[in-house]
Design a protein around this nucleic acid. Structure first.
Lengths: 139, 139
DNA sequence: TTTAGAAAAACAACTGAGTTGCTTTATTGA
DNA sequence: TCAATAAAGCAACTCAGTTGTTTTTCTAAA
């Protein structure tokens, strides 16, 4: 696992205490994170404009990506090995659990390729599975 | 196809001009609708609190259901024959145009089958393409 | 057809997520 | 060490969506 300092350096982002902490939070979190949670974690110590701008910078540099959220709040997850670098396309899909309302990345299911013949300019594709997560199935 | 008057009556919702129009909009729209679009259609003629409360009433009565939206805006679709308990099975995908914010059905792309081997309980699948529509590409 | 009760519409004020412009501070590479 | 610049702080703002209250409209029963 690459360390957060190298990740920031690779993106030409400065190694500030806040950005190191924020990136570590993403690395440690297996599923996705709502902006709400990020603000709970850091607000008070850091300004919300700082928080949103850091998230924006991480996304722009391909460190994290947006994840759909049924409660229409911003939600992000770390880009891991299965995120294709460069083109910043995500080939995995997301499960929204209708019990716990969490969103999980499902690596086993890849999003379909959109044939360029259709002629649409596609920025990204989301395959959203609505169902029940493993943990909630057990309860 | 059941008419909107009967649909409202079945739910014990009053047949007001606005609610008839709103439900007709959902019936006529093949894919999902952003709240933004609903407001564009009706605001000026109807108050936004009225709009949001009607949407809420429709959802509560199982006429429509929320659809995830990567742009963290509320989005709904009509519950049709293949909707079980408010869930909606899509056999086609949607394009969300990030220029004009419209949603289009893309019939050429079918949603992939989710292998049951993965062991997830999936209610329905949404394939959401985020990009630019044909019309906006020309401008 | 009339009318009372209830549902829905209108209005206004509010909440809170996210944005923006600008100034100050901290990081980094030379 | 220091200049360039990225990032943090601050404050004011936008706008989607909510809420409380009053007024209007629908409907079902007399």
């Amino acid at each position: 696992m690459i360390d957060v300092h190298s990740m920031l350096k690779m993106c030409n982002l400065k190694r500030t205490p806040f950005r190191v902490n924020l990136l570590e939070l993403f690395v440690q979190t297996k599923s996705s994170i709502q902006t709400h949670t990020i603000r709970e974690t850091f607000e008070g110590r850091f300004n919300k404009a700082t928080i949103y701008r850091a998230i924006e910078a991480f996304e722009k540099n391909g460190l994290i990506h947006k994840v759909p959220d049924i409660n229409n709040l911003l939600r992000y997850a770390l880009c891991r090995e299965n995120c294709v670098n460069g083109s910043h396309k995500h080939t995995h899909s997301h499960l929204i659990c209708n019990s716990c309302r969490e969103t999980y990345c499902i690596d086993q299911i890849t999003t379909p390729n959109i044939p360029s013949a259709i002629g649409l300019k596609i920025d990204y594709v989301d395959l959203v599975l609505n169902g029940e997560c493993f943990s909630c199935q057990l309860n």
